[in-house]
């Protein structure tokens, strides 16, 4: 794994500049906070890191897009499938199934329950589990604790920290306390461009 380097990234949508000449380095294996006001391009930058959006200018190095996983702003789960099936299709070769099962239990979920029967908070936990279970070198999370109460947040953060195993984690959040829970700090604050 190598550092993730952003070199003079620029991105516009319909003539509106969202990112402009953005350069930054995320150290490999670290937990990095990405903050900034609404509209400053945080989600756009995550999409660039995930390979979903190409920058207009500049380049990203150090990201193997065949080895990334994510928690999106929305849960993006297969609603009719069970929690277990949602995790299995993202991590088909997960060897430590027992460890995964205890992680699911720790998060207060049942692997056999269909996602459409879960509450909003439970769906968020399933999305978090999927991201940490999937084989990856980089995990990106967009407001990972949305809809979770304080106690569940603590449990989820502890599970994420334990499961990182040296992978790089980039988290978009408005809450510094969430970042502290994950053992990270603000690494990059994006400005709102005019």
């Amino acid at each position: 794994m190598s550092d993730i380097v952003l070199q003079s990234i620029g991105k516009s949508f319909g003539g509106k500049r969202v990112l402009d000449k953005l350069s930054h380095t995320f150290a490999a294996g670290g937990v990095h906070g990405l903050t900034g006001p609404s509209g400053s391009g945080k989600t756009t930058l995550l999409n660039i890191l995930l390979g979903l959006t190409a920058p207009d200018t500049g380049a990203v190095s150090g990201v193997n897009t065949a080895a990334v996983s994510a928690v999106f702003q929305e849960d993006r789960l297969c609603e009719r499938a069970s929690v277990g099936a949602n995790i299995r299709i993202a991590a088909p070769r997960a060897r430590e199934k027992n460890a995964l099962r205890s992680l699911i239990e720790e998060m207060g979920l049942d692997e056999k329950t269909p996602v459409h029967e879960l509450s909003g908070g439970m769906k968020r936990r399933a999305a978090l589990l999927r991201a940490i279970a999937a084989p990856s070198e980089l995990i990106v999370m967009d407001e990972p604790f949305t809809g979770l109460d304080e106690a569940v947040k603590q449990t989820a953060a502890a599970a994420i920290r334990r499961s990182l195993g040296g992978r790089t984690l980039i988290v978009v959040t408005h809450s510094e306390s969430d970042l502290t829970l994950l053992g990270g700090s603000v690494s990059l604050t994006l400005p709102l461009l005019g």
Partner: peptide, 9 residues
């Protein structure tokens, strides 16, 4: 429904 529910882990 049977197909999409899928098996567990």
């Amino acid at each position: 429904r049977a197909l999409e529910r899928g098996r567990a882990l």
